[in-house]
Design a protein around this nucleic acid. Structure first.
Lengths: 196, 196
DNA sequence: GTCTATAGTCTGATAGAC
DNA sequence: GTCTATCAGACTATAGAC
């Protein structure tokens, strides 16, 4: 016999794992209940429906993402800007390779969002936040003179495209030199360390 | 009363559309049958199971992709290389914005692939082909002197990352200057038209 | 080729006892 | 809080008539 909070937490954890592994539709409440060690109706004590459980997990995941991507930009100088930018990517790559569940379930939510507006609204908010963060970073780079001021917005967006998609390709098991790719992307927006 | 080929084609077309719109699990054979204008068991005359229908569509889509991405590189010169590269991206962006179904169903297959090996094998083959094509293109660019030879592989992979993810972001309805982003990506790998 | 009818299974969800 | 028992509905798939 567990107390309320423990069971609640276990349901959430288990749902997260099974949804990521099998997808929402191929994960039944019976499967979750079995893995938690309770009966199916017990889940309904905590969540009104399967959809509410899915909604709750999405909100949790969104909160976690927003918490993680908030960057403090002000103390970046000519000397540490490049390394800071590189580290953002390196950390993400390492995290993707560590946590297999996150990317799978998040992709599941992206597909869900293309079909249900309520998810799309939240997803777009996260995306915009993500782009804005990189934009602030790049504009700071322009200000301190390490980033070229031409088309800053497009440069910034390009970096987001690259780092975001690296996660997707890792998911498909394709083994590429992802850190090398990120290094090229970073170099391409920096002044001085240029090609040609 | 239709003839065999016509019904067959209609089933395939309709399945493609409905799978893209609702996902595999949320599209029943009854829905497909209803839209085609036949009864559910009639589908079983053409496909042994729902899974076989899904498999068949995946193979068709893969064939189509392979046919489209094969690039002829040899007649590219210093004068038309940049425009050629730009056009690849522009065409893809326009196609993504035109055909809403393709990207949705393809993402559906990517998620499926992370859970079933038989799909992953085929997906990886396509991905590798995609990367190899861009690699050939970039190496040709190095040979004719428009692309810097340093880390060609990473540069090439970066371009694939960008163009591939643009499709995903279009899917989420986020309105960005995608052509501008692609222009920046292309510029970043070309000699001479550099920043800084 | 396409139908009606139906078998058999699983699902999300509820009622009510303890 | 968690259970057993059970619901109605949807699903894939098959049998057999025409």
């Amino acid at each position: 016999m567990r107390n309320k909070e423990a069971t609640y937490g276990l349901i959430v954890e288990t749902a997260y794992k099974l949804f990521a592994e099998n997808g929402f539709d191929k994960t039944s409440l019976a499967m979750i209940a079995k893995e938690v060690g309770i009966s199916k109706p017990a889940i309904y004590y905590y969540f009104d429906s399967k959809e509410k459980l899915i909604d709750f997990l999405f909100e949790e995941i969104c909160k976690e993402i927003i918490k993680q991507y908030t960057l403090t930009v002000d103390d970046l100088t000519v000397n540490n800007f490049e390394q800071f930018l590189l580290n953002i990517g390196f950390q993400m790559i390492e995290e993707q390779e560590r946590d297999v569940y996150f990317n799978k379930i998040f992709n599941e939510y992206i597909l869900l969002a293309t079909r249900k507006e309520k998810y799309m609204n939240q997803l777009n908010k996260i995306q915009r936040g993500y782009f804005e963060n990189f934009s602030r970073l790049m504009n700071h780079g322009v200000k301190i003179g390490v980033v070229n001021g031409e088309n800053v917005e497009s440069k910034s967006n390009m970096l987001v495209m690259v780092i975001d998609n690296i996660g997707n390709f890792i998911l498909t098991g394709l083994e590429l030199d992802y850190k090398g790719i990120w290094e090229e992307a970073v170099k391409s927006v920096l002044k001085g360390v240029r090609n040609g």
